[in-house]
Computed example of a mutant assay.
Amino acid sequence: MEKEYLKSTTQKLLNCKGGVDTIGILFNTDIEIVDIKGLSGIIDKYTAITGKNEIILVVKPSQSINGGVELTDVKETLAFVEEIKIQLGLNGGTLKRIDFSVDLNEDFESNKKLFRLLLECLDIRRKSAGTYETKKPVKEKRKTGNLKITSKRVQTTAYNSSDKNRISKTRFENRILDIQTPEELEKRILYELKRYIKELHKLEELVPMVEDFYINFLIEEYKESKGKYFRTFTGFVEWADKEQLILTERVLKEVLKVSGITTRFQVFVREFRRTRKESLKFTNKTEIKKIILIVKKELKKIT
């Protein structure tokens, strides 16, 4: 079954690539911070002294290797870290942070419901607080921000990268923080990668649970706002759709049932779209399964 889905998305895979975006390593050293910041591939704002003779070195290998166009695989990442260690006279090193990312062909803005549903499913698996959107300041003239979920030690984000010099339009990033186990670098990286891929397995099966959350939320919102903020059910749907809350057909069908109007679902959708051409774009379980298979496939390549 997975082969069939991947075969149908061959074109989408052409410019997709997974890899390591950022790696953070703890070193025991008395080296001065000024001797590290500014070096190629070092992320200055995250690199810092954390204790006596202790420093966190945060590195983005792709920035130095290819100008940040493509993510680096595990081998390339470790080789770059070794170069930095030789350059600075560092030894050992314990993994504290690792960011695994996949660059995807899907346009972020037009596929926002897909990424929101994907993150909501992953959030249920992690038993976290839900997906939220990070807004950009008005002065940056950006109407929307990134979609993100956060748990105790992991942050996963889907964001628009079309304005950056990268191979694809969207980046799906999984940032693992506060890693405590003092293992050999490569061994720990591969463990965290395997753990992440396992999290994604059959994630699409959680779609109905996500739908239930959104259905219940929208029904409650409609009952509270009816006649107060929205004169009609159509007005409520227009707001909910703009807020990316109507993720699937089932969500709208269930809310429509309690709206009090007798219009059939297909008729309502057709009439709604008649004057709103780009509205009510639904995602579904099949699309989630496809995107998960792509992400897993690209992650497995990086070892």
Rank of each mutant, 00 (worst) to 15 (best):
S151P: 08
I179H: 04
R188D: 08
E211Y: 03
Y191T: 13
R231E: 15
F230G: 11
S162L: 09
L193Q: 11
K253L: 07
F230I: 02
K187T: 14
F213K: 14
R250I: 00
E205S: 12
F233E: 06
V237E: 07
I215N: 10
Q155V: 15
L200I: 09
T170P: 06
W239S: 14
K257V: 09
E204S: 10
D163Q: 08
S168H: 07
E238C: 04
D241H: 05
L203T: 11
W239C: 08
Q266P: 02
F268P: 09
T157D: 01
L190A: 03
K226F: 08
V210P: 02
K242Y: 12
L193E: 05
E173W: 00
F233T: 02
E220D: 11
I176S: 04
V237H: 06
N160M: 00
N174C: 12
F230K: 04
I176D: 02
L185D: 09
S151E: 12
P208K: 08
F217P: 01
E183L: 15
S225T: 12
I167E: 00
I215K: 06
H201C: 02
T248V: 02
K202N: 15
N174M: 08
Q244W: 04
E183Y: 10
R171E: 03
G260V: 11
Q266G: 05
